[in-house]
Every structure is written in C-alpha cells, then in structure tokens.
Computed example of a mutant assay.
Amino acid sequence: MLKRILLVDDEKEIMELLEDFLLVEGYEVYQASNAEQARKVLLQTDIDLLLLDIMMPGESGFSLCKSIRRESNIPILFLTALEKDTDIIRGLHIGADDYIVKSASPGEIVARIKALERRLVLSSSSLNSERENIVRFKNLAINKQTRVVSIGGQTLSLTAKEYELLSLLTEHPKQVFTYDQLLESIWGYEFGDAHTVRVYIAKLREKMMKLEHCHVQIITVWGIGYKLEETEHA
C-alpha cells in the first residue's frame, strides 16, 4: 500500500492544494521544492511514491528521475505543464510510472495515484503467486502450475512420471529417498520392483546430461535409493 507521498514542485499553491486532497484520502504527505530537497527527504523518510514536477529551478525532474531509477523502483508520477508527446514519451522512457498534466483536477490526480496503487497490488500478488508455484534447486526450476521444467534456462521435456519423480527430488534436495518411498509416492504402491525406479532414474539422467550447464545430478545411494545434489563442477 502507498502511504507516504513526496510532492516535488516549486509551485507552492499546487502542492498545498494537492496535499489537502491527499490528506483526506489518508496519505502522509511530504513536500520539496527542488531536487536537492527531494533527495534529503528520500534519505530521511521511507517514501512510497513521488509526484514529481519536471520544470524546476536547478536540476530538472527528468534528471532526478534518472538518478533515482539507478537505485530504486519507487513509483514516480510526473506532474507537469509539458504536454507534448515527446515529453510524455521521454518521461515514461526514463522510468516514470505515469505522466499527468497540471491541467488535470486534484481529484483526477488522486484517482491516478489510486489506479497505480491497484496495479502495484495486483502485480505483487501475481508475482508472489508465481513464485509460490516455482520450485528451484541451483539452476533447475520447476513451474508446478504449468509443469514446465528448465535447467539453465533450457526446457527439459519429460513424461508424466519423470516429471513427478524429478519434482519430488527437487522439492527435497539432498534428501535420500528409498526405492519403496519413491514407488509409493510416484506409482502409488508401497512395495514393488526397484527396477522400475532405476529405469526412470536412468531416463531422467540421460535427458539431464544432454543439456548444457546442468548444475544438478541424481546421485545413487547404493542399496538405499536416490537423492538430488549439486554437480561437483557447478
């Protein structure tokens, strides 16, 4: 959630008007009249969003935006009298999240801030969901939602059982699984022929070894079963 907003503009009346609207919406508002003051506020306070003018005394908003983007992904909205397409494109190109002309009403500006806030929340939720669906070990990644397996960025084509077997080993790296444990987890029966497991492990190893830069390997623990380990040369 965006809580603390920094207004950077040399026009005091505009800042005071915007502050009134933002305070009513529950935001904490900070003010700076130039780039130097803005940097001081950013060093002292955990700001969630910048509403930044372009034409200011001294350093421009474009320059300040560029320098901030080298260190931070904080949301930045340009608020400016410049309305040319070239100015808008430039502002977005150097890292602004939105571009608002000063002819917009305070209500519209607040609405744009809230729209950006909603996009950030949705993006964060989507990213977190995607991360939860991905299992990783070294340079092996398994997307459990799409069932796509990749090693070093290269896709590994697997059968259903091969996928289930590798997924289990990847979710518990370095843990030794016995033949019986693998049979029960993947094939659904407690006891069976260990040869079945050995055949599938052999197929998996063959496919993994064909990929360049494979930093994982399935290790045989003699007389017991298998585990997934990092390769010695990784």
Rank of each mutant, 00 (worst) to 15 (best):
M1D: 12
M1T: 12
M1G: 13
M1S: 14
L2E: 04
R4Y: 02
R4W: 01
L6C: 01
L6K: 00
D9A: 05
D10W: 11
D10E: 08
E11R: 09
E13F: 15
M15E: 07
L18H: 01
E19H: 07
E19T: 10
F21L: 07
E25T: 08
Y27P: 06
E28R: 10
A32P: 02
N34L: 03
E36P: 08
A38F: 00
R39V: 09
R39G: 12
L43Y: 09
L43C: 12
L43Q: 15
T45C: 02
I47N: 00
D48F: 01
L49C: 15
L49I: 11
L52K: 01
L52Q: 00
L52S: 02
D53G: 08
I54V: 14
G58K: 09
E59Y: 00
S63D: 13
S63G: 00
S63A: 13
L64K: 02
L64P: 02
S67N: 13
I68P: 00
R70W: 00
R70D: 11
E71Y: 01
S72V: 05
I76C: 06
I76F: 04
I76P: 10
L77F: 10
F78T: 02
D85C: 05
D85A: 07
T86H: 05
T86Y: 02
H93D: 10
D97P: 01
Y99P: 11
Y99I: 05
V101D: 01
K102S: 13
S103Q: 12
S105C: 06
E108S: 14
I109G: 00
A111I: 08
A115R: 13
E117Y: 08
E117F: 06
R119E: 11
R119P: 06
S123I: 00
L127N: 15
L127Y: 13
N128K: 15
S129G: 10
E130C: 09
E130G: 00
I134G: 14
V135C: 05
R136H: 04
R136S: 06
F137S: 03
L140V: 06
A141S: 14
Q145A: 12
T146S: 14
V148S: 01
V148A: 09
S150A: 06
G153P: 11
T155F: 13
L156K: 09
L158S: 11
Y163I: 06
S167P: 12
S167V: 02
T170E: 11
H172W: 09
K174C: 03
Q175C: 04
V176G: 06
F177R: 13
F177M: 05
Y179K: 07
L182E: 03
L182G: 08
S185H: 12
E190N: 12
E190M: 04
D193Q: 13
H195R: 15
V197Q: 05
R198Y: 05
Y200Q: 14
I201D: 04
I201A: 06
K203E: 11
K203Q: 14
L204F: 05
E206W: 02
M208W: 03
K210I: 10
H213E: 08
C214A: 14
C214Y: 02
H215T: 03
V216H: 04
I219F: 13
T220K: 15
G223M: 10
I224F: 02
Y226R: 07
E230I: 01
E232I: 07
E232N: 07
H233R: 03
A234L: 07
